[in-house]
Simulated assay, not measured.
Amino acid sequence: MSTNPARVLIVDDSALIRQMLTELLSADPGIEVIGTAQDPYVAREKIKQLNPDVITLDIEMPRMDGLEFLRRLMALRPMPVVMVSSLTQQGADATLQALEMGAVDYVAKPTQDLQHGLAEKGRELAEKVKAAAAARVRVKQAPKVRPSSTLTPAAGFSSTEMIVAIGASTGGVEALTEVLAALPAASPAVVVTQHMPASFTSTFARRLNGICAVNVVEATNKARILPGHVYLAPGDQHLRISRSGANYVCSVGGQDRVTGHCPSVDVLLHSVANAAGKNAIGIILTGMGKDGAQGLLQMRTAGAKTLGQDEATSVVYGMPKVAFEAGGVETQLPLGKIAGRILDICVKEKGGAVRV
C-alpha cells in the first residue's frame, strides 16, 4: 500500500462546507486536499488538471446534480468517490443510488448545527477517505426491476431450517445487491447486518425488495424468520436471532456500540452461532475494520459453514481479511460465486448432489 497521502478533491456548492471539509481532512497527515470545486463542471476540469486519488461529492448542486456527475464520471473515468449527503429520506435514496453506481462510501451531512456536526464527523470522514483511496472501484448498475433469479436450486435442494447470516460494511450495498439478487425465491432465510444509519436501512430494504426474488424487509422484534425472506438489521439497533419453540425469530434492540458499530456484525453472528449452530452459513463481505471476525469464528467453531469475500472482488478487503486471518473463514470466494455456494451448501447438508 502506498505511504503517500491520499490526494483529495472536494466538490460541494457551499463555500462554508468546502472550507470546513478542507480543514477537517487536512488535519490528517494521511490526506492532502489538492483542490475544491463548487460544481461538477469545475470539478471535471480539476480532475483533468490534478488527477486526485479520491473525490468527496455533494449530491445537491447547481447546473448538474451529484448523481448525474457520478454516473458520467464512472462511465468515463472510474475513481474512488465518497458521497457527502444529508440524512433525510431523499438523501438516503440518492446516496443508495450513488453506492449502486460505484461510489465507495458516504458520510451523512448533519441537518442541524452544520459546523459542529461536521466537526464531530472529522475522524469518520478522514478514515473513509483514506479507505477509499485504497479501494477497488467496481462499476455496476443495479437491476431496475425484480428479476428472475440467476440461479436455480439443484435437485435435492432444501432451505428448511437453514439460516444464512451476512455481514458487510464499505462496498456492502453493491455486494449485498449482487448476492441477494442472485438467490431464488426458495432460498434459505437470510439475516443481514450492514453498517448504515437508521434513516438508510428501511430505504435499502425497499430497494433490495424491488430487485430480488426473495422478500427483503427491515427486521422487527419477534418477527418469525422464514425461508425466502431476508431480514436487514435496522440502522440504529442490533439484530440477533433466537429460538422460539421450533422457530427462529428476530430479536431487535440495544444501541450500544460493539466492535465500534451499531448494528454490529459480531452481535448478529454470535447469536446465530448460539441459536443455529451447524445449521447455519456465515458470510463476511467487503468492509473496513474488523467487525464480524470473532462472530464468524464462533460460528465456525459451532459447526457452521463460513465464507469470506476474496480480496480481488472486495471494494475494501478489511473485514474479510481480518476474519480470514482469525480463522473464521473456511472458504474465500469471489463475490459472484457466493450465492451459488449458499445453495450448494444447502444441498450438501440435506444429502443432495452438489451443483457444479
Rank of each mutant, 00 (worst) to 15 (best):
D93G: 09
G235E: 10
K350C: 10
V347D: 13
A108S: 14
C262L: 02
D310T: 10
R240M: 10
D266A: 05
L21I: 08
G156E: 12
T3N: 13
G253C: 06
I338T: 11
N279M: 06
E32N: 04
V33E: 02
H261C: 07
T160Q: 14
Q194F: 04
A213C: 01
H116F: 11
E127K: 00
T203A: 06
R44F: 06
V104M: 05
H229I: 13
S2M: 02
Q112V: 11
A131V: 08
L176F: 07
P153V: 06
C212D: 01
V315Q: 01
D344T: 08
V11N: 03
A131Q: 06
A133R: 08
L307F: 14
E124M: 12
A181K: 11
T286V: 11
M288V: 04
V8T: 04
D266I: 08
A126W: 06
H229Y: 15
A15F: 13
Q38L: 03
G210R: 05
L285K: 02
D58C: 00
V54E: 07
V214T: 09
V230G: 02
G352A: 10
K48F: 02
S242E: 15
I284F: 07
M162K: 06
A135W: 10
E23C: 00
A275V: 09
R77M: 08
N51H: 13
D113R: 14
V354K: 14
P263G: 05
I283W: 07
T201F: 00
G35D: 13
I163E: 05
R138Q: 10
V192N: 05
R7G: 06
I163L: 12
Y231K: 08
K121F: 04
M74L: 02
G318L: 10
A323P: 09
I17V: 15
F204N: 00
V315K: 01
Q255E: 09
I31R: 01
S251I: 15
E45S: 03
E100D: 13
K121D: 07
T95D: 04
K144I: 10
A280S: 09
L180V: 05
L208D: 00
V265L: 05
P227M: 06
R77L: 07
T3S: 15
E120K: 05
